[in-house]
Design a protein around this nucleic acid. Sequence first.
DNA 1: CTGTTAGCGCCTTCAC
DNA 2: GTGAAGGCGCTAACAG
Lengths: 341, 341
Amino acid sequence: MKSNQTTIVDIANELKISKSTVSRALTGHPSVKTETRARVLELAEKLDYQRNMLSISLITNKTKTIGIVLPEFITSFFPQVVVGAQEEAARQGYSVLISQCNESYETEVANSKVMLANRVDGVMVSLTKETLNYDHWKAFIRKGIPVVFFNRVCEEMMVPKVVVNDYDAAFKAVEHLISIGKRRIAHLAGPSSLVITRKRTNGYLDALKKHNIPVDEELIIGYDLTLNKVKMYVKHLVELDNPADALFAVNDPTAIEAIQVLKQLGKRIPEDVAVVGFSDNYGSNFIEPSLTTVAQPVREIGRNAMELLLGLMDKDISEWKPLIRTLDAELIVRNSTVKGS
Amino acid sequence: MKSNQTTIVDIANELKISKSTVSRALTGHPSVKTETRARVLELAEKLDYQRNMLSISLITNKTKTIGIVLPEFITSFFPQVVVGAQEEAARQGYSVLISQCNESYETEVANSKVMLANRVDGVMVSLTKETLNYDHWKAFIRKGIPVVFFNRVCEEMMVPKVVVNDYDAAFKAVEHLISIGKRRIAHLAGPSSLVITRKRTNGYLDALKKHNIPVDEELIIGYDLTLNKVKMYVKHLVELDNPADALFAVNDPTAIEAIQVLKQLGKRIPEDVAVVGFSDNYGSNFIEPSLTTVAQPVREIGRNAMELLLGLMDKDISEWKPLIRTLDAELIVRNSTVKGS
DNA sequence: CTGTTAGCGCCTTCAC
DNA sequence: GTGAAGGCGCTAACAG
């Protein structure tokens, strides 16, 4: 199965010179006669010669490829992170091998193997909601392949991470609800396996404490991000003897779902129940009422993670620093908490 | 720069046997003593040996990697196509190299070069809105690398394609508008460079013709999908002497933008202006009024394109058939055309 | 300035 | 059953 692609040998034969000279001319080595170089380049152009990265990778033991492993590809968050990451990668001459895991731990492990087999120079990872074991990522470190986490990070691994200040943002979001007079603030939390989720919950708890509002366990519901359960939870929360008058949702899809349910139940938003989300997803600005939420600098997250990762490329393992870059997330107040804002 | 990854040589040295035997044991060659194989496999497991695909690719001239080149990554459409494509690829043991082009022709060309340099076994492509020259993709065919287009296809290249019946769906969408009594049906069309866009426009035109509604050029606006222009266009359309009473938008983001503008202008939807979109994007079901639109089998598009592509893998160029697979798209009627439906 | 040699990690002959 | 040798396309080191 011979390739149809032009090789250095083809050019060398055609020009009746040695392969090394062709190689040198192609790689811009100074010690090549200008005329020889010109002839090589011309023929290469004519034959549409394309360097075979495979052989180069085999020699240099670098593929100039970065793996990006994502938990899902459905919400607009991760694709946009990829855009930022890819921009930075391209700028530094790297390609990107992407895989998404459908929120499945098994798939995450399988995808990590693919990355290894393809000899990526590093990986940028956000964990699935199921992931509790990190051996597959620790293996990368052991093999000298840098790992950078973003968004859904692994706390126990001492590697660079890019996150947003989930705690602060959640704190502010809940303070905002308090400031508009809400006291029975419910929280639809994400799975406790995710650090970001726990941070958001902590922000919620501390905001209540600061304002001397008793924490009512009844108002806190942890769930697995399966949207079709939201209806049941929201119904439960507003039908309590002492019902919720506000909802802080772990993310926007949850909040959007909740708004729809509340409307079905005939509740006024924000008068009866105010709602705050997290992420400023597509649609959050045009759902009615528009959703108060926390905006994350999505592309910047991707760009920063890639930057940190590529920064480790030429360094020895001993120089890797578990730098944590925290980006600012910002509360955007819309109509789901403040009428006509 | 030596790798930290275990190689066949490591195993051979450790076990004091030849590399070839190790290789045979690892690849499941029958002519290896059961005991030898067991020892090799055990050590490979212990050392977390991972085959180096690079060298195998170099030998077999196959990378088991498929390139996916997308025009953008912002709308939910393409990421979901990727999910379907990746599922099929994984099922057949292929990895996927993804790149998105920010709707830029230059970037598309650059990305195609990256795919070539990485020696992908094939590419799955959807064109940017700027792309009018296809030389970079024709080069793939010349080099014996199969190309399959989906969604935004290249008409002049005789390669497999996966599309939805844009014409039929547009036709039905416009007939639907006619059926609810609309006669001044405007069309916000996409750039004429895209085939899908032209097909949708043709469906629009023929539906009008079939129902003896005169085509008014004033009501047809072609634009470059830059959302911030929608406001101007919609305003223009409803302020005509003989204003539009319905709008068929080339895609959902456009339709959603239009709905927001119409509401700002105090128009009632659908009474004053009915709106139909295309694609059933995220958010189209919860914008108010909810958007009547054409739903595409997004994942299936990805799955089918990948299937067609992988089907060409072991075949000779002469056997490649320019098969066009057309999937059904379906009109979903919501409140932007029929109140309370 | 240019040619020759060796080798990246693996698999595939060809021998024994 | 196992070992030794050659080569995929390219670059780096060593000669001239």
